[in-house]
Amino acid sequence: MADLQAQERHDAHRGFPPTGRSRVVDGLRAYRLIAWMWIRSTMAYRASFAMTVFGNFAGTALDFVAILLMFSRVDELGGYSLGEVAFLYGLSSAAFGLTDLALGSVDRLGQRVRDGTLDTLLVRPAPVLAQVAADRFALRRLGRITQGLLVLGYALVVVDISWTPLKVLMMPVMVVSGAAIFASVFVAGAAFQFVAQDASQVQNSFTYGGTTLLQYPPTVFAKDLVRGVTFVVPLAFVNWVPALYVLDLPYPLDLPEWVAFLPPLVAVVCCALSGVAWRAGLRSYRSTGS
């Protein structure tokens, strides 16, 4: 009797799991399922949710208040008007906000490695990166995006941009490519945490630090820093390089004009590289279990 049942169940597994389905589709599906569980978990504490959404909005808005305070004393910052700085700020915040919403908790990977809970994800039939990315999915992070988009809207009203169809097209492309570039930094940082589990602060300096950097004009920073952000960790392609084309302002480094249209390509290359880094990190974890 028992044997028969076991055989029956074994048969049921024969067509299972469906093969040929792409890992990306599998990953997105798992992401959606887990993110929804986290949303419902947060809704268990509604009042707290409402307060953290407001807190997130207000906390990130303070960044812009700092810029406003500066402009109450001076008319220009590094040769940029308030509207132009707001343009950079809005783009950077919106792109970063999207990434922060989608995978803001991957920096907890080191913690998961330390306490061993990563193992519980590895026995599930879903890509680990999707599960880690969806971890602690929090709608309160919409606060940062909202705030970024509001500032961007303000900039579009006050700055006199000579619009062309190309420039209009560049706006959504910049935000999406920028989010993808930030995402690759998040994932590469998480991959590094497989090796160094206490490296989440290093990662934060590139992600949160990076977005703050991009909120200011490149002209206020030293040339070497601008070079590093352009050629080494290409955060400059989130907003600086393409946005200055839209604003008809010169980039501090001598770059050809077509570089302004590179963000989608830079994003694809960065994502591919961080994907490789992630796989290497996961492989190293599975061979060392550290």
Binding site: H13, F16, P17, D26, M37, S41, G116, T117, D119, T120, V123, R124, P125, A126, P127
Partner: peptide, 18 residues
């Protein structure tokens, strides 16, 4: 991931429940 469909794992000290 293919094996995951055919095995069950219980870690005594780590719950997988929400």
């Amino acid at each position: 991931t293919r094996l995951a469909h055919r095995i069950g794992v219980v870690f005594g000290q780590r719950t997988t429940l929400w």
